[in-house]
Design a protein around this nucleic acid. Structure first.
Length: 260
DNA sequence: GATGACCTGTGA
DNA sequence: TCACAGGTCATC
């Protein structure tokens, strides 16, 4: 599920329900889930006795600050954070999932008896310690037009591929990118360096409105385009059949009439 | 850059 | 049984 909006919902839950609490025990039952050389022993040594002092987010990446370390949590394609057995984010989506204990990939138990778990059926998420935060571009929530220009650069890659590159802009995933491009009336496959100055202004506004509106509605799947994202689906703006193809390695829906 | 790999669940 | 899935990473 997670693009930046789901990560943000998760950040809020961690901030409201886990910050201020102290780690008593670290649970790392799935070693595969520990990334970049992290081991159960290392993460245990780093976090045991540490108090969570803040929860941040850069794009899709969650960053939990402790007194001496930063715990990086990534939700992958199917991850959710559960604090004290209550799932973060959309309760409807959560309800459709079974709560299988074997999907718990990483967790901490607090000294007050509660817990925080990262549950991820597909195991595409991960945990790292003290991540290098320079590998992410500016966060999409607050991105400026100037930063959009810098992100686009002179790239000849398809526009969608550039927007989803987390090093250029952090936070846009497949659904939000399709929605933003649909709103901007820009073809996802368009060569990035073919955009006019006006195009970049429209694109920036579309990104901002996509984030604002979908955040308010409750997630990456709440865009106007999303309901029509299926084979044979029609553009909700002008009714023609949407084009379905692979752009930037991801299934892409766009309107062949109004996205140019 | 495009492609396949990673891993596993869901639904047609 | 198969296609597909909201993410990243390595490799041609």
């Amino acid at each position: 599920m997670p693009e930046c909006l789901e990560a943000e919902a998760t950040r809020v839950v961690i901030s409201e329900h886990a910050v201020g609490r102290t780690v008593k025990k670290v649970e790392a039952p799935d070693e595969w889930f520990l990334k970049r050389g992290l081991t159960p022993a290392l993460v245990r040594a780093a976090l045991k006795g540490e108090t969570f002092v803040g929860a941040r987010r850069v794009g899709k990446q969650l960053l939990v600050d402790t007194e001496q370390h930063v715990l990086g949590l990534h939700l992958g394609m199917s991850g959710r954070v559960i604090v004290d057995d209550v799932a973060a984010g959309d309760p409807l989506l959560y309800a459709s999932n079974r709560n299988a204990p074997e999907w718990r990939r990483f967790g901490v138990r607090f000294d007050d008896g509660g817990s925080l778990w990262l549950r991820d059926p597909r195991r595409l998420g991960g945990v790292e310690l003290d991540p290098d935060e320079s590998r992410w571009g500016p966060d999409v929530f607050t991105i400026t037009h100037k930063q959009v220009l810098a992100a686009l650069g002179r790239s000849t890659a398809p526009l969608k591929a550039v927007l989803m590159d987390q090093a250029r802009i952090a936070g846009l995933g497949n659904l939000l990118t399709d929605e933003a491009l649909w709103r901007a009336k820009l073809d996802p496959a368009r060569r990035t360096n073919s955009l006019t100055a006006d195009d970049t202004v429209v694109l920036h506004k579309a990104i901002r409105s996509t984030i604002r509106i979908c955040l308010k509605r409750g997630g990456s799947h709440t865009g106007d385009l999303h309901a029509h994202r299926e084979r044979g689906g029609r553009c909700p703006l002008d009714g023609v059949e949407l084009e379905r193809r692979t752009v930037g390695g991801r299934t892409t829906y766009s309107c062949p009439l109004h996205q140019r």
